[in-house]
């Protein structure tokens, strides 16, 4: 149900935050993480690592996208679309929690 929300027109009003039980570290400019929930290791990459930093505290997706668009050379629409796709991937792996605003 929440994932469906991430694909709706109101997705940028939702709040995302890291889920508990993940250990992350920087490796060659990319963020590598271990999830105690899934028992898997993940590479979030450089931009994914920045997203991970930004969701240390609850943040609404619109503000998250605004911050990314101000820091990176990218059109806001593309930034939002690709950031949402990444958040969906993380949600499916139980790496984040999504809450209504």
């Amino acid at each position: 149900m929440i994932e469906a929300g991430l694909t709706s027109g109101h997705d940028t009003e939702q709040i995302v935050v890291r889920a508990e039980g993940n250990m992350a570290s920087d490796m060659n400019g990319e963020k590598v993480m271990f999830s105690t929930r899934t028992g898997k290791y993940y590479n979030l990459g450089a931009v994914g690592g920045r997203i991970w930093d930004l969701i240390a505290e609850p943040i609404d997706i619109g503000r998250l996208v605004d911050t990314l668009a101000s820091e990176y050379e990218v059109e806001r629409e593309m930034c939002e679309r690709e950031a949402l796709a990444f958040l969906r991937q993380m949600y499916r792996e139980s790496l984040i929690e999504v809450r209504p605003s």
Binding site: V32, K40, Y41, Y42, N43, L44, G45, A46, V47, G48, I51, S70, E71, Y72, E73, V74, M78, C79, E82, A83, F86, Q89, M90, E93, L95
Partner: peptide
């Protein structure tokens, strides 16, 4: 301040041997 280059964020699942030993 110059903006950084955007790369599509992807969640890559690693296997342990890749993570620990290259």
């Amino acid at each position: 301040m110059a903006k950084q280059q955007w790369q599509t964020p992807e969640l890559e699942t690693l296997n342990v041997s890749e993570t620990m030993y290259g």
